Amino acid sequence: EETVVIALYDYQTNDPQELALRRNEEYCLLDSSEIHWWRVQDRNGHEGYVPSSYLVEKS
């Protein structure tokens, strides 16, 4: 079962390993094994790492 997370803030990045976030957008959580950086996928299928503190699990 996939976990959906919501971005609390915008996040901009130039790092190809990371993914930009848009506030209030939903993302699919792929990997939360790292404490500070979670791997997520956006609705267009793009994947990357984002700061975990910018996300909240959708209830």
Results as ranks from 00 to 15, higher is better:
39 R>I: 12
1 E>L: 14
11 Y>K: 03
41 Q>L: 08
16 P>C: 14
34 E>S: 13
18 E>I: 04
33 S>H: 12
59 S>A: 13
44 N>I: 08
50 V>H: 01
17 Q>A: 10
53 S>Q: 10
58 K>M: 07
18 E>D: 08
47 E>L: 06
59 S>F: 07
49 Y>E: 05
24 N>G: 14
15 D>M: 10
20 A>T: 14
56 V>T: 09
56 V>N: 09
15 D>K: 15
28 C>P: 03
55 L>R: 02
26 E>S: 09
27 Y>A: 01
32 S>N: 12
22 R>T: 14
46 H>Q: 12
20 A>W: 15
47 E>N: 09
55 L>Q: 02
31 D>F: 01
17 Q>T: 11
9 Y>V: 10
26 E>P: 05
41 Q>K: 13
15 D>H: 09
15 D>Y: 06
42 D>E: 05
1 E>C: 04
29 L>Y: 01
2 E>R: 06
19 L>A: 03
36 H>G: 13
21 L>N: 01
18 E>F: 09
32 S>I: 03
3 T>L: 11
2 E>F: 14
29 L>N: 00
16 P>M: 09
41 Q>H: 10
32 S>G: 10
59 S>D: 13
50 V>R: 01
23 R>G: 05
54 Y>A: 11
3 T>N: 13
19 L>V: 11
10 D>L: 00
18 E>W: 04
13 T>R: 08
41 Q>R: 15
52 S>K: 15
49 Y>V: 15
39 R>N: 04
8 L>A: 06
8 L>K: 15
15 D>I: 07
6 I>C: 08
51 P>F: 03
29 L>E: 00
28 C>F: 14
52 S>P: 10
5 V>D: 02
10 D>Y: 03
23 R>V: 09
53 S>I: 13
36 H>Q: 13
44 N>A: 14
1 E>K: 14
35 I>G: 14
35 I>D: 14
40 V>R: 01
37 W>N: 10
49 Y>R: 15
3 T>G: 05
59 S>W: 13
13 T>F: 02
54 Y>I: 09
59 S>P: 15
11 Y>C: 02
13 T>E: 10
53 S>L: 06
23 R>D: 01
18 E>N: 11
40 V>W: 00
19 L>I: 12
